[in-house]
């Protein structure tokens, strides 16, 4: 049983496409890893898998193991360096030197011969694939398994929830994170996802509002990372936790697309951290691990907060 050694399983859902499910999943995973947890990411978007691209491991292939598949490793776990060697003088450098948990991914993208091929499957085949992803991947011991889903509620979701309700314990199945954007249209969409969760008795861990505000790469004049959309009000209305707002950060896209470590104009302060100075001090260059470069991204402190809230909610639910 491949889910056996996993402590908590969380789904990432949205009614509408392109609101940032995959980028939220990616960042939740990176942020959890930066807080020392071992994390797995399962991509059940079978026709448009984007997790391999987000983690920069598009050419990776899954390896077969007896009775199953081995997930692709993004990075190994690493102890914080001030524990292993206490010799750096400047405590402020901690950010780039601290440890992180291991991170693994599984996606249909790793199994396709050609990345541009259209994937056309019948419902039953999709169902079988989702089940297989849940039963045959050797994750090993994980603190968190995050599951990225295709938009809407279709065969993949139904099969996913059905299988999880059967093969994971209620303690393991922490619940779902719902992603939305400030546009009214996508808020009305969240209602549907909440209804989906209620009907399938999946606990709602909270709502994340993505693309609220903007981190300008040019100057810090009107960088507005906390411009609130309707996410919070909506969460209150539906009596589900609000996990936080995430601004649009072109530097995040640059990181994903070009592997470049983010840099910010002077005066860009997020959550009390001066992102400009952080960048100047950091020793992590473009060759570093994704997780190390992400630590320099303005969205990193934002997600650190979101993940703390999420972990609390999960622990409360898990009793």
């Amino acid at each position: 049983m491949s889910l056996q050694d996993i402590k908590h399983i969380a789904l990432v859902l949205s009614g509408k496409g392109g609101v940032g499910k995959s980028s939220v999943t990616t960042q939740l995973a990176l942020a959890l890893s930066l807080q020392g947890h071992n994390v797995g990411v399962l991509d059940i978007d079978l026709t448009g898998p984007s997790i391999p691209r987000f983690f920069g491991i598009e050419s990776a292939k899954v390896r077969q193991a007896p009775g199953g598949w081995l997930p692709v490793q993004v990075h190994d776990g690493q102890e914080a360096s001030d524990k292993t060697n206490g010799h750096h003088e400047n405590g402020q450098e901690k950010n780039s030197q601290s440890g992180h948990g291991a991170l693994y991914c599984m996606s249909l993208g790793f199994l396709l011969a050609n990345r541009g091929d259209a994937v056309v499957w019948r419902g039953p085949k999709k169902t079988a694939m989702v089940r297989q992803f849940l039963s045959d991947v050797h994750w090993g011991p994980l603190d968190y398994l995050l599951i990225d889903t295709p938009p809407g509620t279709s065969d993949e979701h139904i099969s996913l929830v059905e299988t999880l309700l059967k093969s994971a314990t209620p303690e393991q199945l922490a619940g779902a994170v719902i992603v939305t954007t400030p546009q009214a249209i996508s808020v009305s969409d969240v209602k549907k996802e909440i209804n989906f969760c209620r009907k399938t008795s999946v606990h709602v861990l909270g709502v994340i509002e993505n693309m609220a505000g903007f981190v300008c790469p040019n100057c810090a004049e009107c960088t507005d990372v906390f411009s609130k959309g309707g996410g919070k009000a909506m969460a209150t209305e539906f009596e589900v936790p609000f996990l936080g707002s995430v601004p649009i950060d072109p530097m995040f896209i640059r990181l994903i697309e070009e592997g470049k470590a983010p840099v910010y104009p002077e005066g860009t302060v997020v959550d009390g951290q001066d992102m400009h100075q952080n960048g100047e001090k950091s020793e992590v260059g473009d060759e570093g691990l994704l997780v190390e470069k992400y630590a320099r991204c303005s969205l990193c402190p934002v997600f650190a907060g979101i993940v703390r809230g999420l972990v609390d909610n999960i622990n409360v639910t898990a009793g």
């Binding site: 009614g15 019948r122 419902g123 509620t153 279709s154 139904i158 549907k192």
Partner: peptide, 12 residues
């Protein structure tokens, strides 16, 4: 219209 359409492919 507020309900998610939790249907498998053939029904949709």
């Amino acid at each position: 219209r507020d309900d998610a359409v939790i249907w498998r492919g053939p029904k949709k």
